[in-house]
Each structure stands twice: as C-alpha cells, then as structure tokens.
C-alpha cells in the first residue's frame, strides 16, 4: 500500500469528477468560477455545521442516535444552503441575461443553465469528496492501510472513497434536478433532491453496525443509480420539449 494505492483511492473518489471537470467545466472559465464558488459555499456550510456540533463532539457513546441527529441536521442545513445558492444563481442569471442583452447576444439557453447547475453541483460534490475523503487519505500513501473496527472486510480508505464517489455523483446531479425543479416550479423535483440526499445519508448510518459497510455501501450505490436515472430522464424530457418548441416556432 504505497503511492499507487493512495492515488488509486483518490482516483476512485475523484476520477469521475476529474473527467467531468476536464471534459465540460474546464472549457468555460465561467463554469470553473461557478464550481469554485459552490465549493466555497459547501465549505462554509460545513464549517458552520461543525461550529454548531463542536460542542457535542466527540461522541463517546456507541449509540447511533447522536449520529442520526447529526446527519439529519446536516442534511437539512445543506439543503437550506442549496436554496441560498439557488437564489444567488437566480440573481446572477438575471445579470447575465441583461449583460447578454446589452451586447446583443442570445440569453442563456437551457443547456447553459444546465451546465451552470452541473458546475455548481460538481462543486458541492468535489468539496464533499475532498473534505471527507481526500483529506483523510494521506496515510494511504504510506506503507500500511487502515481498517475501522466496524468494517473489518474492507480497508477504510476504500469504503471512504466509494462513499465519497457516491455522494459526489448524488450532489452533482441532484443540483441539476434541484435547479430544474426550482426553475420549473415542479414540486416533485424539489422534494426528490432532499429525500435522496437524506436517504443516502441515512444509509451511511448502516455503517455504524458491525459489518454494516458491506450492506450500506451497495445500497448507497443504488441511490446513486436512482439519482442518475432520474436526472437523465428529466434532462432528456427537457431537451426534447425544447426541441419540439424550436421546431414548432
């Protein structure tokens, strides 16, 4: 377990994010700025959360309910942050639109908006992966590996990387779903995102049980698949709708 292992774990967690970044986000500077902003947002939310929870930490007892409360509050708080982020995005969209009007260019189109929301979601996801996985990965570059007591089958770093990957994908694509839902004022989309986030987080609670990571991690992957499928359907529907509109007009 040396540099190769460390790099491997890092790539498991952040590889897809990297390819998304290199393939889509890096092409447009504005998206990079969006990504940085959203990463910063997530970091600030995490700092506030940890500030609140600092008093109660570390949790000594083996009980699971403090973790449940922690996760519930965290998810609620982060969904609130998402709303704030949406407000900001809305303002920025207006500014961009008026700017586009002034220089006589077309306004933001659907794909643009989706790209922006993708970048925003990717920022959240990358921040999650970086702070929850990558920053703990330093020991993996050394000669040993590490097992958590509750999960003796898989190395801690591997579980951590897979969970981070799952959350990265969920964060990324649920931002697209959420922005679209807010934009269309569609209740189902708006509700879907927090629910998925919550379920995915609750699934990590399974890891608290001895040997739970063998069950919890695949379940998380199922949630990832559900999110991806939902996002795909939604984007497909929007794009084909838009195309119909263009044909008819």
């Amino acid at each position: 377990m040396t540099v190769a292992a460390g790099l491997g774990y890092a790539l498991v967690a952040l590889g897809p994010a990297f390819s998304l970044f290199a393939g889509i986000v890096a092409r447009k500077p504005f998206l990079v700025l969006t990504l940085l902003t959203s990463t910063l947002f997530w970091l600030i939310s995490l700092i506030i959360l940890s500030g609140i929870w600092r008093v109660f930490l570390p949790i000594r007892s083996g009980a699971w309910w403090p973790y449940a409360i922690l996760i519930l509050t965290s998810v609620a708080f982060q969904e609130g942050i998402r709303l704030v982020f949406w407000r900001l995005y809305k303002k920025m969209e207006e500014m961009l639109d008026s700017f586009a009007d002034r220089i006589s260019k077309p306004r933001l189109c659907l794909t643009d908006k989706m790209l922006i929301s993708l970048a925003g979601g990717l920022g959240h996801g990358v921040a999650h992966a970086v702070f929850f996985c990558l920053s703990l990965l330093t020991p993996a570059f050394g000669r040993a590996t590490f097992y958590v007591e509750k999960c003796s089958r898989m190395p801690f770093f591997l579980v951590s990387a897979i969970i981070s990957l799952g959350f990265l994908v969920i964060h990324t694509f649920s931002m697209i779903i959420a922005f679209n839902g807010y934009g269309e004022r569609k209740r189902s989309d708006q509700v879907f995102v927090p629910v998925v986030h919550l379920i995915a987080s609750v699934m990590t609670l399974i890891n608290l049980a001895p040997g739970g990571c063998v069950i919890g991690t695949p379940l998380l992957c199922v949630m990832v698949a559900v999110t991806l499928q939902y996002c795909w359907q939604m984007v497909w529907r929007r794009l084909s709708e838009q195309q119909h509109r263009q044909f008819s007009s």
């Binding site: 995490l46 959360l49 940890s50 929870w53 600092r54 930490l57 570390p58 949790i59 973790y67 922690l70 996760i71 965290s74 998810v75 982060q78 999650h128 702070f131 929850f132 996985c133 920053s135 703990l136 958590v148 509750k150 999960c151 801690f156 579980v159 951590s160 969970i163 981070s164 959350f167 986030h197 987080s201 990590t204 609670l205 890891n207 608290l208 990571c213 919890g216």
Partner: peptide
C-alpha cells in the same frame, strides 16, 4: 474534529 469524527465512523452526508 467534526469531519474526522464523523467520517471515521463512515457517517457522511
């Protein structure tokens, strides 16, 4: 402490 505490227990959100 927060992040390390929660993620060494594999609880993430």
């Amino acid at each position: 402490p927060f992040v390390v505490g929660s993620s060494t227990n594999l609880g993430k959100f």
